[in-house]
Amino acid sequence: MTVLFLVLPLALLIAAAAVWGFAWAIRRGQFDDLETPSQRMLLDDDPLPPQEKRR
């Protein structure tokens, strides 16, 4: 179980990286709108790429 002395700090480092990523995302404004993205993902992509659209 001495591996704990290595694993515990390592786990905390990973957690710190996650927190850093979280802070980065907040600063970029990614959490400003919590409503639309949850619905936007339900929209299907277009079957046709826009170039082939008939005029």
């Binding site: 786990a11 957690a15 927190v19 979280f22 802070a23 907040i26 600063r27 959490f31 400003d32």
Partner: peptide, 25 residues
């Protein structure tokens, strides 16, 4: 106001990460 909201959200998230780690320990 917007940056204040972002700061509050960050604080909450950081506190959550720390609290859950302390809880696991």
């Amino acid at each position: 106001r917007r940056s204040e909201i972002r700061r509050e959200f960050l604080r909450m998230g950081v506190a959550a990460a720390l609290a859950l780690n302390v809880m696991a320990i």
